[in-house]
């Protein structure tokens, strides 16, 4: 469908997407993996190069999904593109579906390229099954942030949507243990982290990389966020739009 194709094309064309969702995680990975990539901090833990790989894959995927939904939806609402779409024979839900699919599609390169960098530059070795499960699980988990992006995009104006998304992304990444190993976070922060979808998304990958199955807790927390945010997004879409269209100067 050409709407979907065009959505993907314009996302890939956006230099900010390439820089922040793909370039930055790879750069940070190389930096952190070089600085802290030594032996595991404690026995039984992942090697730094692997742990940071998963964290940075999550970091890139989250921004890929969030940045291709929230600010874009807010902008399209503001400039009236969604109004134009309403006048054309395409149902609004298909327009939204195309955006979500395209957005999810942009997360995949962000995940794969970090993994590829880790494997080639830092010699990270996982079994083929682990690689597949890791990429698939993290990709699927990043869909939670599409729901967040839609909720933001339909509630916040175009000017604020980008900074709000970026601020939330940064805060949730930092507290969610994507920047520093969650093990060295203070107890209180660790409790908060465990409730965040950022931490839980990375945790899927950490468990798989360690040769375990993802914990039910992580899957449940992610699902709960997905359901909750989808509900918010749904309500935001349905919210009656206040349009200042019918000016009536001589109404009386």
């Amino acid at each position: 469908m050409s709407y979907l194709r065009l959505e993907i094309v314009r996302m890939l064309r956006d230099p900010k997407y390439l820089a922040l969702a793909v370039g930055a995680p790879i750069g940070f990975y190389l930096l952190f993996a070089t600085l802290f990539g030594g032996s595991p901090a404690q026995p039984g833990q992942l090697k730094g190069t692997v742990e940071i790989m998963v964290a940075m894959a999550a970091y890139g995927a989250i921004w890929a999904v969030l940045s291709t939904t929230a600010p874009r939806i807010a902008e399209e609402r503001q400039i009236g593109w969604l109004e134009q779409v309403r006048a054309m024979p395409i149902p609004p839900r298909r327009v939204l579906a195309a955006k979500v699919i395209a957005s999810a599609a942009t997360a995949l390169p962000a995940i794969i390229l970090v993994c590829l960098t880790a494997a080639t530059v830092k010699g990270v070795q996982l079994s083929a099954g682990q690689w597949t499960a890791l990429v698939a699980a993290m990709w699927a988990g990043s869909a939670v942030f599409a729901a967040l992006g839609i909720a933001i995009g339909y509630t916040i104006g175009a000017d604020a949507a980008y900074p709000v998304s970026y601020g939330l992304y940064m805060a949730m990444s930092a507290i969610g243990g994507l920047w520093v190993p969650p093990a060295i976070l203070p107890e209180a922060m660790r409790n908060v982290a465990q409730a965040l979808p950022t931490y839980r998304l990375a945790d899927l990958g950490w468990k798989i990389a360690a040769g375990q199955a993802p914990t039910g807790a992580s899957v449940l927390v992610l699902l709960a966020w997905a359901v909750g945010l989808s509900l918010v997004a749904y309500l935001a879409i349905l919210r009656p739009r206040v349009r200042v269209r019918t000016r009536h100067p001589a109404a009386a």
Binding site: L6, V9, R10, R13, D14, R72, E75, E76, Q78, I79, G80, W81, E83, Q84, A87, R245
Partner: peptide
Amino acid sequence: LQDAGLMPGV
């Protein structure tokens, strides 16, 4: 339409 925008970036 009067207030219709264009899809940015294409």
